[in-house]
Nucleic acid binder design. Sequence first.
RNA 1: GGUCCCAUCGUCUAGUGGUUAGGACGCGGCCCUCUCAAGGCUGCAACACGAGUUCAAAUCUCGUUGGGAUCACCA
Length: 479
Amino acid sequence: MKVRTRFAPSPTGYMHIGNLRTALYEYLIAKANGGDFILRIEDTDQKRYVEGATDIIYKTLQRVGMNWDEGPDIGGNYGPYIQSERKPLYAEYAHKLVELGGAHYCFCAQKEEEKDVDEDTPEAHTKLKDPCKHIPLEEAKARVAAGETFVVRQNINKKGTSLFHDVVYGDIEIDYDELDEGVLLKSDGLPTYNFANVIDDHLMGITHVVRGNEYISSTPKYNLIYEAFGWEPPVYVHVPPVMKDAQHKLSKRNGDASFQDLVAKGYLPEAILNYIALLGWNPGDKREIFSLQELEKCFSSERLNKSPAIFDITKLTWMNGCYIRNLSAEDFHQLASPYYKDLPQSLDFTALSTVLQPRVETLGQIPTEVAFLAQVPEYSNELYCNKKMKTDVDIAHKALELVLPALNDVTNWNNETLFETLKGIATANEMKNGQILYPVRIALSGQETTPGGATELACVLGKDETMMRIKNAITKLKQ
RNA sequence: GGUCCCAUCGUCUAGUGGUUAGGACGCGGCCCUCUCAAGGCUGCAACACGAGUUCAAAUCUCGUUGGGAUCACCA
């Protein structure tokens, strides 16, 4: 049987990291087994619907290369793929389930008021006893037919314990007494997740269900529905949550980073995807850098972890740095260019990219790294004093006076020539290389550390600006 | 509170009865070096606790502690 998995987000906001990881695992289970990955939109809660959220889901999946084989936009043989468009289907199956004895009609208004009293008393936690369950079926059907408002509630008639197998957690046993007779079809005619999920997964031929482990305790309820219809339940793959810290899940509510937030900060989609793949899964060897295609080849759900993983932005940042360094010079330049927009147009941006590529871990770091190129920051002449370089203000002054005319004579303004020229000055004057290069670098940048060395900065700045900055530095040193 | 689940360096993890408990991030040091990065080498750092089973336990069992989840006309 062909493996079919589905990613079934509800369009309630934007794509957060935990969601994306679930989607990734679903995608990988499908692709590692030559199966299909289906996209389904679960919008049965009209109150939570957010305009444009579906679009963000599409864009995000596309951005990381997780292409779906069937979905609302491209169709497929099992559509529609948006739950609100499947409304009649759920009603039909809900009524059928009642006939089969798996559910009953309930005419009580909202049950809430019974529940929100004494939340902590044992009584409040026992299974809801619904009086409507005892209404004879014919009478209930008549009331439904008469137009009375109703919901369909699940029947939990079994006693004892339910056992099911999960790929990640193994065999799980849950007592039927723990299950409540929840609403399957709401009074607005739309299904709850508990119902829509089962109906759609079956109708769409889903073979593997990947979802958060918070669904473990309600899985027996879904199995009961499958059983009532005489359907085969899917393979369950419950995954632990992605955490912000030891106590809290990563969530939008806390303002934790979403996929798009990270991209906006200059993280590469490929790096984000690679990182989250490893948050709860490992290949069994020492490899850490994976493209989506490589993951498709070696992914195995057996190697999924049971315990929650804390999202560590530091490690993601490192990994992003790896991806940046592995980019071709052209690709990096293209990605970096938008971050150069506040710099003078006279700079050699290709040279700048060369200097920056091994030095930034996120694209967002670029503006602060290069700010000095637009304007030399305020600095003290004390900066010229460096023990290791054996420089002080006097040496720096001397160095710059020597460098200025020599640079003026340089016609071939490139790193190699500049470096040889400056080294030549050091040798000719019996000075250490650093005693020339360090002051030049300070003069050009006005800061202690810079991306790239003195000559590389000179290349980026160009001859005119370099000469200008050295002259200014000399003037400043005379004060 | 009932029920279910989880537990190896700070973090991500390898490990399925016998390992000097391995790797990665981060952190410290050294080398390289025109500063900073990158790269190379290196150091610090973990089996939550207690019983049991066994010649032998991070690994199996039980308990304790700690954490999480769930108990909606949300998903």
